[in-house]
Nucleic acid binder design. Structure first.
Ligand code: SF4
Ligand code: SF4
Lengths: 151, 151
DNA sequence: TAGTTATCCCACTAAATTAGTCTGATTTAA
DNA sequence: TTAAATCAGACTAATTTAGTGGGATAACTA
């Protein structure tokens, strides 16, 4: 009963890379550390992080005292980069996928709506970088707890 | 490999209700007719249409020569109405769902992004009614074929 | 009243996706 | 050499999606 929801994979991946963006760029964070801090199943996260590696968003150091760090600076990594690395491109409906074509397309009146949605969603994701998230703890719930911890 | 895609169910349901909006309001269209015109599996469509019925978007006439027609006028039925009738509310990430709460929420920096996406998507879907689709055959592909058939 | 055509209702299956685990090899610092 | 880490890939379990089938019920027509 919930539509157009991003998968856990992507949420977890974003948690991880956002965590890295808050750490010293030279520091290597282990899977164990990230998983614990962000409350993500460790082995699952391991696989997710491998995908971010292959796409060149983060880099790794192997062996003891190894771990991960951002491959480029936080303002050069967008939400879209992460999402696309993990799940491929966003296609809000089947006909928005280039590889697929619908037989109704020539006389379909709703494709305009899908492309409008797709354009807007993509715009937000490409515009938002990890650096943008630095300051805002949680836009809506800036209440007692978060204020006191910031002091 | 395609993210945030609406399910076939919704696409089929929209095809059906859009088709009804192009027909005489008094005419009853049978499942068979709609399924054939819109190229949707008949039995599957039957179930989808029942959901639209229960939500009061369309009405039916039973028996021989029965069928379906819009329950209200085309400009009073939005995309959002149809989508919500078929799949429930749109929640772009788990934490946007009221029934679910994430333990990371208090210190999460990305909820703002999800709510922005959610707001924009919802805005387009609520703003767009079936009546809006009447004229536009297909915004992008207004090429030879559609132009000649319009003449 | 019988026959036909349609909605209505609910159980069921088959395929795909998602979320996650298990095993084990390889690399490197201490 | 041992411990701590990444790396690689097969595997499973649960859920969701897409679709089917069978049959009851209702209304129109002859
Ligand atoms: S019916 Fe229209 S909106 Fe749906 S998949 Fe086909 S072209 Fe796209
Ligand atoms: S981590 Fe943040 S964005 Fe993800 S579900 Fe929790 S609150 Fe929402």
């Amino acid at each position: 009963m919930s539509l157009m929801q991003i998968p856990r994979r992507v949420d977890y991946g974003l948690r991880a890379i956002i965590y890295l963006s808050t750490q010293d760029p030279e520091k290597c964070c282990s899977i164990t550390e990230i998983a614990k801090q962000q409350n993500v199943p460790k082995k699952f996260l391991e696989k997710i992080i491998q995908d971010l590696m292959r796409r060149g968003l983060i880099r790794s150091k192997r062996g003891s005292c190894g771990g991960y760090s951002l491959a480029r600076s936080a303002n050069e990594i967008s939400f879209y980069d992460v999402i696309e690395a993990l799940e491929g491109s966003i296609t809000v409906n089947a006909c928005m996928d280039e590889e697929f074509s619908c037989d109704q397309l020539p006389r379909c009146t709703m494709v305009g709506v899908w492309s409008e949605i797709q354009r807007k969603v993509t715009e937000v994701f490409t515009r938002t970088t990890l650096a943008d998230l630095r300051r805002t703890p949680c836009r809506d719930i800036v209440s007692a707890s978060s204020l006191s911890s910031a002091a």
